[in-house]
Design a protein around this nucleic acid. Structure first.
Lengths: 155, 155
DNA sequence: TTAAATGTGGAGTCATTTACTCCACAAAGG
DNA sequence: CCTTTGTGGAGTAAATGACTCCACATTTAA
């Protein structure tokens, strides 16, 4: 249950772009430095975003990247899918080709519900929320502790 | 964004145990066969569940595993933590030791919110929901139901 | 007391995926 | 043209995930 670095990098880079004055471009090497992402890897990340239509690139001198849509219209869902494609929480989720069971297994419904919950958040969170310095992302939970703040039975 | 097989196996195995008549045990090799999990790997999975206090094991002839709590009291959250520890969606989530930025980054709030959403589902989903043939996972279905076959827990 | 059936512990191996690099090339502009 | 930008994709390295193995401890029953 972990997000890939590629996705994280993509988000960071888009935030960077979203903070630029409208229409301005940022070069790969600038984004790389400011977001602390390896240059050559970032190049690959950005290509995904270009292909997905989230940013445009211009070549040659004074080239670079810029958002193709207003920040309020770029959702995390779009970014996720640009980087990873359709979300599948377990191997057998949609394709079902290697599902170990012929009939639907008991947990299928939970995985689906879980994915929906995640996707809902991804859909409703836009770059605009992230670009703002104090994002008002209701319901965030500041609790944090080292290991499981949920009691383990016995043990 | 994917759940590990270990976690999936753990859930399947617990469902298997939850479907047994109260107090009955199942041996490793039986669970392995019925849930299609490699035996030697399952052994490791089960040890995690034992350590976490979700199941008890008995050695020797006629030994095996059985639930230590009624299915309605075993949440997916407990299972998750037994297998994976505290959830961290991105590398820098709690420890923050390798966070690339000194001040909180823009997306931290979303990751936290996301984790909360997932954990909420994990907390409110119990083994009882999965053991039932037609799980009604619609809402957070508070404890109700005809006394499960664990009416008087303890055993 | 022995033997067989069970789980335990953990080191070790194999496989897959993730993260990242490199380099030749194409487009744009001076 | 030459430099500066991104592009494409093959290739490599590192990390993690998935799984195996085997010696050992415990329990029960012959």
């Amino acid at each position: 249950m972990q997000l890939s670095k590629g996705f994280d990098y993509a988000v960071r880079s888009l935030v960077h772009l979203g903070r630029l004055p409208e229409g301005a471009t940022a070069e790969l090497r600038v984004i790389s430095a400011s977001q602390k992402v390896p240059l050559s890897y970032l190049a690959k990340v950005m290509r995904n975003l270009v292909r997905a239509g989230l940013v445009t690139s211009t070549l040659g001198r004074d080239g670079g990247y810029r958002l193709r849509l207003p920040p309020g219209e770029i959702t995390l869902m779009m970014v996720y899918e640009a980087m990873e494609g359709r979300m599948r929480l377990v191997a057998c989720m949609d394709g079902a080709k290697d599902c170990a069971f012929l009939t639907k297994c008991a947990q299928a419904a939970v995985w689906t519900r879980l994915r929906k919950a995640v996707e809902d958040i991804f859909v409703e969170t836009t770059l605009r929320d992230l670009v703002a310095d104090s994002p008002h992302l209701g319901g965030s939970d500041p609790v944090s502790s080292k290991e499981g703040h949920y009691a383990r039975a016995g043990a």
